[in-house]
Every structure is written in C-alpha cells, then in structure tokens.
C-alpha cells in the first residue's frame, strides 16, 4: 500500500503524535469551487436548538489546518432513536461538518458534546473510545481481511466477549454471515458498506456516524442500505449521516440539516424539509 498522501493543508498542525495527520481528510469532498451562487439569498435561515441533544456539534467554525474556514457556525445534532441527515449541494461542507464532529479538523469556535460531555479536545481515536462509531466514505473496510476479521478488528479496543455483538451484526446484515470467511474486498459495493457499518457497530458505539453510505451503489442497493440503516436506528442508536441522495435520505430522516457554504441554511424534520417550497426549489430541483 502506498502511504497516505500528504495533505498540504495539514502541515502546520501541531503534531500530537506521529500518526495524527493520517485520517480521511480528503478535501476534494468539500471542493469550495462549487455551489457559490446560492449564498446570498439563503443566509441565516434557522439555528436549531440542540443544546440538550445526545450528540451535538454546536456553532462549529473551522477548516483544515490554517486554510480558510469551511464551516461557519454550523450546528448539527442527533438524539437516540433518531436519524439525522446532513444534505446540501456540492462543496457545502457536509462531510467537513461530520469530520468536525469526529475531530478530524481543528475547530476555531464551537464545541462538540457527546452524552453531556464536551469532547471538543479529544482526538478521533479517543472519540472512538468515548463511544463514537465512524464509517468513512472511502477505504472503510480491510479489503484483504475476511468479513469476520473485519468485525474482529472493529472490536479491537474491547477486551470482553465480542461474540454476542457479532451475532447482532450478523442478524442485522444476514448476508455477512454467509460471507464471513470471504475476503471483504471480494464483496459487492453494497455488501462492503454493510461490512463497514458492521465494523463500526462492533465497538457498541453510543452514536453511529456515516459519511455518504450510499455513494457509488445502484439505486436498488441504496434502498436496501437505507432499510438496513433504519433497522440499526430501531436498536436505539442515534445515527448521524451525510448523504448525496438528498431526497431519499430526507425521507427517512427525523432531523434534516441543509448546509450551504458551511452554514445551516434550513433545518427541520425530513418531512418538513421535503415539503418546504424553498428547499425544493433551490436544492431538490423542484
């Protein structure tokens, strides 16, 4: 494997340890060149009240390294049993917002709260230990390891018996039980995403964060993945996810956040947002 590409923008970060810069920091997701035309008319529409939510990133402002701010007082949150979805045009900072919640960029302002505790200063690894399950958008499985080994590695931090959790994951994603001895890299796109989500669930996280789980899969597989995500949510675990397929995602969302240029443009239940004429006109395409 080639070593992770060095991202020029992270050079000036204070080094906490030798590996602190190696994360999914691909800036291409938040390409600032797109979506510039929508800014003026959409500013400052709503600021959701999230002070008491189970997981909340509150008034997050910041960017990568010393680069320009990508997020501007952006707020997202989710409560148990809920699915919260971040949508928005290309370059709106959706993935960046999620990475900010996960501690992959330095916040200049704002804070992140998990279960009543301020975790703004924790590294991504420490946030995993604190109960965050994160599924990156790309390279989110160990391709040369079997499905079962992927799940075992997900539970690496745990020292107790992981068999029951693994059974739960297999119950959620039955196809993985059949393929548990197969290298994960040999599975189809949709199955790989199930492995990725399963791996994150193995830590028994308090919240699950998904970065575009349906990127690159067919519409049929996408529907199935959404069904699975709803099932995971029914187990009570709060889910925060970023989605490119806005309409379908908002249909299953208890909370929806429309970001534009790193700001909260619209916030409401998924149904409200889908019904909002302005959201429809400017963002969902009528």
């Amino acid at each position: 494997m080639c070593p992770p590409a060095r991202d020029g923008t992270t050079e000036d970060e204070p080094v906490t340890d030798a590996y602190s810069d190696r994360g999914n920091k691909d800036r291409s997701i938040a390409n600032p060149r797109d979506g510039a035309s929508m800014s003026s008319s959409l500013k400052g529409e709503a600021t959701p009240s999230t002070e008491t939510a189970f997981l909340a990133g509150i008034d997050m402002t910041g960017g990568y390294g010393r680069g320009a701010d990508i997020l501007h007082a952006c707020t997202v949150s989710v409560d148990p049993g809920e699915i919260a979805v971040i949508v928005g045009p290309n370059g709106a900072g959706k993935s960046t917002a999620m990475k900010a919640v996960f501690g992959m960029l330095d916040l200049r302002e704002g804070r992140v709260v998990l279960d009543g505790q301020d975790i703004s200063r924790l590294s991504p690894q420490d946030r995993v230990a604190a109960g965050m399950g994160f599924v990156p958008q790309v390279r989110n499985i160990f391709t040369s390891l079997t499905v079962e080994e992927n799940l075992e590695m997900g539970a690496f931090l745990r020292r107790d018996d992981i068999r029951p959790t693994m059974e739960q994951v297999y119950d959620l994603f039955p196809i993985l039980r059949d393929k548990r001895r197969q290298p994960a890299g040999e599975l189809s796109g949709g199955q790989r995403q199930q492995v990725a989500v399963g791996r994150a669930l193995m830590t028994r996280p308090k919240v699950l964060m998904l970065d575009e789980p349906t990127a690159g899969v067919s519409p049929i597989v996408m529907d199935e993945l959404f069904d699975r995500i709803i099932e995971v949510s029914r187990t009570g675990i709060p889910i925060l996810m970023v989605e490119q397929n806005a309409r379908q995602a908002l249909e299953i969302a208890d909370r929806g956040y429309v970001l534009v240029q790193g700001r909260n443009a619209f916030t409401g239940t998924g149904r409200e947002l889908l019904a909002d004429p302005e959201v429809r006109k400017s963002f969902l395409g009528g």
């Binding site: 190696r22 690894q125 995993v128 040369s144 590695m153």
Partner: peptide, 12 residues
C-alpha cells in the same frame, strides 16, 4: 498493513 487509517480508527 491493509488500511492504516481504518486501523487507527479501530484503536490499533
């Protein structure tokens, strides 16, 4: 060896 980023995320 397979995926360093994900290994770090998994607490290895």
């Amino acid at each position: 060896s397979d995926n360093e980023d994900l290994a770090l995320l998994s607490g290895i």
